[in-house]
Amino acid sequence: MPRGWEAVLAAASSPSWSQRIRAGRELASFAGVPEAAEALVALLLDAGDTAVTRQTAEALARVGTVAAVRLIALAVAEADDHQADWLQTGVHDALTRPDGVLDVAAVCGQLARGPEEAVRRGAAEVSAWADDTRR
């Protein structure tokens, strides 16, 4: 685990939205670590501030690994319409940045063949967002 891991995990549940955003960005690279994954899904579904949802989704989409996109898909499957809008905005922000082309749709294709129904459902939605962004 990286140095200061406990502090970053604590920041994920901070009452401060800016601390939660920082935690989402810092934890995104560790989406495959169970403790980080749990915190990241909570940040993606943050009830306190839509900026946390948006920034965490963007950070995970920029990482673009199967583990990272899986967490977005899980959150999409659980999100209400309002949260889903902000998840979509975060993914869109990542996909339209000029400093890198991500193939989130290809990762979603892998996830769509996985065993978890919620992940398959969420991955289909994220894939559609990625397709819309490419048009």
Results as ranks from 00 to 15, higher is better:
residue 80 D to E: 05
residue 52 V to T: 09
residue 114 G to K: 14
residue 71 L to C: 07
residue 57 A to C: 10
residue 43 L to A: 04
residue 114 G to S: 15
residue 104 V to F: 11
residue 94 A to N: 06
residue 62 R to S: 13
residue 74 L to D: 08
residue 40 L to E: 09
residue 74 L to Q: 14
residue 101 V to P: 02
residue 66 V to D: 11
residue 122 G to V: 07
residue 78 E to Q: 15
residue 69 V to K: 11
residue 61 A to D: 14
residue 44 L to H: 06
residue 59 A to D: 04
residue 104 V to E: 09
residue 54 R to S: 15
residue 61 A to H: 13
residue 78 E to K: 14
residue 113 R to W: 05
residue 89 T to L: 08
residue 96 T to V: 15
residue 117 E to F: 12
residue 83 Q to T: 13
residue 56 T to P: 06
residue 97 R to A: 15
residue 104 V to G: 09
residue 103 D to G: 04
residue 42 A to M: 00
residue 42 A to I: 02
residue 114 G to Q: 14
residue 121 R to I: 14
residue 120 R to K: 14
residue 40 L to I: 08
residue 49 D to T: 08
residue 107 V to E: 03
residue 46 D to M: 00
residue 109 G to H: 06
residue 87 L to T: 01
residue 82 H to D: 01
residue 91 V to M: 12
residue 120 R to S: 04
residue 123 A to F: 02
residue 58 E to I: 03
residue 121 R to D: 15
residue 39 A to W: 02
residue 53 T to E: 12
residue 62 R to A: 15
residue 39 A to F: 06
residue 47 A to E: 14
residue 77 A to G: 10
residue 37 A to G: 15
residue 94 A to W: 11
residue 102 L to N: 10
residue 122 G to T: 07
residue 61 A to L: 12
residue 57 A to E: 08
residue 68 A to Q: 11
residue 107 V to C: 11
residue 73 A to Y: 02
residue 38 E to D: 10
residue 94 A to K: 11
residue 64 G to N: 02
residue 93 D to K: 05
residue 117 E to W: 13
residue 88 Q to N: 06
residue 86 W to P: 05
residue 122 G to R: 05
residue 104 V to N: 11
residue 85 D to C: 01
residue 99 D to I: 12
residue 103 D to P: 00
residue 110 Q to R: 09
residue 89 T to F: 01
residue 72 I to S: 13
residue 85 D to T: 03
residue 40 L to D: 03
residue 45 L to S: 10
residue 41 V to R: 01
residue 53 T to C: 11
residue 114 G to E: 15
residue 85 D to S: 01
residue 79 A to K: 00
residue 105 A to Q: 15
residue 117 E to A: 15
residue 83 Q to W: 02
residue 65 T to Y: 10
residue 101 V to H: 07
residue 67 A to N: 12
residue 59 A to L: 01
residue 70 R to E: 14
residue 102 L to Q: 14
residue 111 L to V: 09
residue 81 D to H: 12
residue 88 Q to P: 02
residue 113 R to T: 14
residue 68 A to Y: 09
residue 116 E to M: 13
residue 48 G to A: 12
residue 112 A to W: 01
residue 103 D to L: 03
residue 66 V to F: 07
residue 92 H to W: 10
residue 91 V to N: 07
residue 41 V to P: 01
residue 101 V to A: 14
residue 38 E to S: 11
residue 92 H to K: 10
residue 66 V to W: 03
residue 70 R to Y: 05
residue 75 A to K: 00
residue 39 A to T: 07
residue 52 V to W: 08
residue 37 A to N: 12
residue 55 Q to N: 11
residue 109 G to R: 08
residue 116 E to N: 09
residue 76 V to T: 10
residue 57 A to P: 06
residue 72 I to A: 08
residue 76 V to P: 00
residue 118 A to Y: 05
residue 74 L to H: 03
residue 60 L to N: 00
residue 105 A to I: 06
residue 42 A to Y: 01
residue 87 L to I: 12
residue 102 L to T: 10
residue 63 V to D: 15
residue 77 A to I: 04
